[in-house]
Amino acid sequence: MTALGLLYPGHSAEDDYQRIELLLGSDIRVDVVHTDIGEDAHRVDALREMGAPGRLAAGVEQLRLSGAEAVVWACTSGSFVYGWEGAHEQVRALALSAGLPASSTSFAFAHAADELGVRRVAVGATYPDDVAALFADFLREGGAEVVAVRSSGIITAAEVATWGEAELFALARAADHQDAEAVLLPDTALHTAAHLPALEKELGKPVLTANQVTVWEALRLADRRVNAPTLGALFTREPIVQA
Score class of each variant (00 low, 15 high):
Ala210Val: 09
Arg237Glu: 01
Val71Leu: 11
Ala70Phe: 04
Val60Cys: 10
Trp216His: 03
Ser77Arg: 03
Leu23Asp: 14
Ala194Glu: 15
Ala13Ile: 08
Arg55Cys: 00
Thr126Gln: 09
Phe135Ile: 02
Leu6Val: 14
Leu190Ser: 05
Gly142His: 00
Arg19Glu: 12
Gly25Pro: 12
His34Arg: 15
Thr230Ala: 15
Ser104Trp: 05
Arg55Ser: 04
Ala148Asp: 02
Ile37Pro: 01
Lys201Val: 07
Ser103Glu: 06
Thr230Glu: 14
Trp84Asn: 00
Pro9Gln: 09
Ala136Ile: 01
Arg19Ile: 13
Arg237Pro: 00
Leu116Glu: 10
Ala170Phe: 01
Ala243Thr: 05
Asp45Trp: 09
Tyr17Val: 13
Leu199Tyr: 04
Phe138Ala: 04
Ala133Lys: 11
Val131Gln: 08
Pro239Gln: 09
Glu85Met: 07
Asp40His: 07
Ala174Asp: 13
Ala182His: 01
Thr76Met: 08
His42Asn: 14
Leu168Asp: 05
Ala112Glu: 02
Gly78Ala: 11
Ala161Cys: 03
Gln62Leu: 13
Asp176Arg: 08
Pro186Arg: 12
Thr230Lys: 12
Thr76Phe: 09
Gln178Asp: 15
Ala218Gln: 10
Thr105Ser: 15
Gly51Ser: 11
Leu196Val: 12
Val226Leu: 12
Asp40Ser: 02
Arg55Ile: 01
His42Ser: 08
Tyr17Ile: 13
Val121His: 00
Ala189Asp: 11
Phe138Pro: 05
Trp84Glu: 00
Tyr82Cys: 04
Ala74Leu: 07
Ala113Gly: 07
Thr192Gly: 05
Asp129Tyr: 05
Glu181Gly: 12
Val241Trp: 01
Glu167Ala: 09
Ser152His: 03
Leu196Gln: 15
Thr2Ile: 12
Asp36Ile: 02
Trp163Cys: 05
Glu159Asn: 04
Arg64Phe: 01
Ala112Asp: 03
Glu69Gln: 14
Ala148Ser: 11
Tyr127Ile: 04
Thr126Arg: 02
Ile20Ala: 10
Leu7Cys: 11
Ala41Lys: 06
Ser151Tyr: 03
Ser26Ile: 07
Gly99Asn: 10
Glu165Val: 08
Pro9Arg: 06
Ala68Gly: 09
Leu134His: 11
Phe138Asp: 03
Leu219Pro: 11
Ala158Asn: 01
Leu7Trp: 10
Thr230Arg: 15
Val72Trp: 07
Ser104Phe: 02
Gly10Asn: 07
Pro197Ala: 08
Ala3Leu: 13
Asp31Pro: 01
Gln242Ile: 00
Gln62Ile: 10
Glu159Val: 01
Pro53Trp: 13
Leu208Gln: 05
Ala46Leu: 07
Ala132His: 02
Gln62Tyr: 03
